Deep mutational scan, measured.
Amino acid sequence: HNLTITQGKLFFHYNPKLCLSEIHKMEEVSGTKGRQERNDIALKTNGDQASCENELLKFSYIRTSFDKILLRWEPYWPPDFRDLLGFMLFYKEAPYQNVTEFDGQDACGSNSWTVVDIDPPLRSNDPKSQNHPGWLMRGLKPWTQYAIFVKTLVTFSDERRTYGAKSDIIYVQTDATNPSVPLDPISVSNSSSQIILKWKPPSDPNGNITHYLVFWERQAEDSELFELDYCLKGLKLPSRTWSPPFESEDSQKHNQSEYEDSAGECCSCPKTDSQILKELEESSFRKTFEDYLHNVVFVPRKTSSGTGAEDPRPSRKRRSLGDVGNVTVAVPTVAAFPNTSSTSVPTSPEEHRPFEKVVNKESLVISGLRHFTGYRIELQACNQDTPEERCSVAAYVSARTMPEAKADDIVGPVTHEIFENNVVHLMWQEPKEPNGLIVLYEVSYRRYGDEELHLCVSRKHFALERGCRLRGLSPGNYSVRIRATSLAGNGSWTEPTYFYVTDYLDVPSNIA
């Protein structure tokens, strides 16, 4: 807008934040220059609390790290170098490059900038070799853009010569660093050979998330399962459950009422301010606690030095998902009996873990797994792929695949051998790939016309006998059925096997 004052003059007093240069501009645009008398524009009460600059400061050096910015700028000295009290560095987070010096300023003089007072450097006698002032900004957020400017702080001049310097606002972004852990990993099994893994992005990506790394490792069953005799009275049979499938998407929606109208769909109840505040506090606490764990609990591995020492970490090797089922080394339970199943799973520490690289999504279907087997899954978020990966501390989750139908069934015939004193040795093959492992066998036998009897055969007993022995049988026709019990439950009964026990007292003698 054009402003013209045809008559009258300007009068400025007691404006401590208004620089004289701005008042002189007002004289020019209003056409009143030359009308004012000496005392109409006070030299001592206008701009006496402001830094009124008329020179431009330029930054000469900028260096960044993930949490620091090192700045240096060209030296500046007023005509009387004693008038320079120091520099004021202003900075704040700036997602967009549209910041002005006066953003967030209120009537009390406060604003949204963080201000650092910096002492002037030592003055050199040689004007050509003056030290460049600077400042190291610490405690910054990774991968965050900051708006920065600097200006001088000078003393009051009796001659009211307006001098000083100020830089333009520059924008500097800190470097990326390792992201925080992925949030809320959930693993479920939808079949006997697959596990579905879902997660949420890290709360602090500290860069642009480029991919996720998912490692999985087959877990050995508890050692007590191999040692305890679950045929003993009072000892509860062990059981394991597989990871249940995901709930429906509708039930997972946030901010939804727990109660549904019987007449149909209901609208979600909005969260109160107290609920939102509580969630923010919980989120802040979780982030602080995660940072504490990362800094205190997890110790970084030592990389190899120039002395030739090897990095103890196993090298990563990509495998196809079809090879995942046989990740671990199978060892027989008892070496003397080769027909026992290889369900003991000690994992070799030198073995390469299978892994998958996930790009542009937060889910993965891990296939080719062994049925009813526990897996430990390790999830890392990465925001750099080359020249070397920059990934987060791992988040861990466990899951067990679903049982395989008929995996616990005894394959092959049940054979028998009759000894003296009416002892019958029953023999059968253990299931080759049971659900988890076989903890015991149930032997059901009966003599024709009598009630059915049951015998429990422990895992250890089966390994020693290759089956079991029935003792003290009365003469007669017998039928026997056997079924295995694994961590997933009972298998199917075998087809009945028949044998006849004679009275050993009636056996004919070869003595003449």
Rank of each mutant, 00 (worst) to 15 (best):
N206S: 05
H211D: 00
Y212Q: 00
L213F: 03
V214Q: 00
F215N: 12
A220M: 05
S223R: 10
E227H: 09
L228I: 13
L232A: 10
L237H: 03
T241F: 15
P244V: 10
F246H: 12
F246T: 11
Q252I: 08
A263Y: 15
G264P: 04
E265F: 08
E265D: 13
K271E: 08
L277S: 02
E279I: 09
L280S: 06
E282F: 14
K287L: 05
K287T: 11
T288Q: 07
T288D: 11
L293A: 14
N295F: 07
V296E: 10
V297N: 08
P300K: 14
T307N: 12
G308P: 09
P312A: 15
P314Y: 14
P314I: 01
K317G: 07
R318I: 13
R318W: 15
R319D: 03
L321Q: 15
D323P: 07
V334G: 11
V334W: 13
A335V: 10
A335E: 13
A336P: 11
E350S: 11
H352Q: 11
R353Q: 15
F355M: 12
F355N: 13
N360H: 11
S363P: 08
L369W: 01
L369D: 01
R370L: 15
H371V: 07
H371Y: 11
R376I: 13
R376Q: 03
I377E: 00
E378H: 15
Q380K: 05
Q380C: 11
A381K: 01
N383H: 11
D385P: 05
T386M: 02
T386A: 05
P387T: 14
A395C: 10
V397H: 10
S398I: 09
T401D: 00
P403L: 10
P403V: 06
K406I: 13
I410S: 07
I410A: 12
I410T: 03
I410L: 11
V414H: 01
H416M: 09
E417H: 02
I418A: 10
I418S: 11
F419Y: 14
N421L: 12
N421K: 12
N421V: 11
V423K: 03
V424G: 02
H425I: 14
Q429C: 15
Q429E: 15
K432Q: 05
P434C: 03
N435G: 01
L437P: 05
V439N: 05
V439S: 06
V439P: 07
L440P: 00
L440R: 06
Y445V: 06
G449K: 08
D450T: 08
E451P: 11
L455H: 11
L455G: 08
C456A: 02
K460S: 12
L464K: 11
G467R: 09
C468R: 03
L470Q: 01
L470S: 01
G476Y: 00
R481W: 03
I482W: 00
R483A: 04
S486R: 02
T497N: 09
F499G: 00
Y500E: 02
Y500G: 07
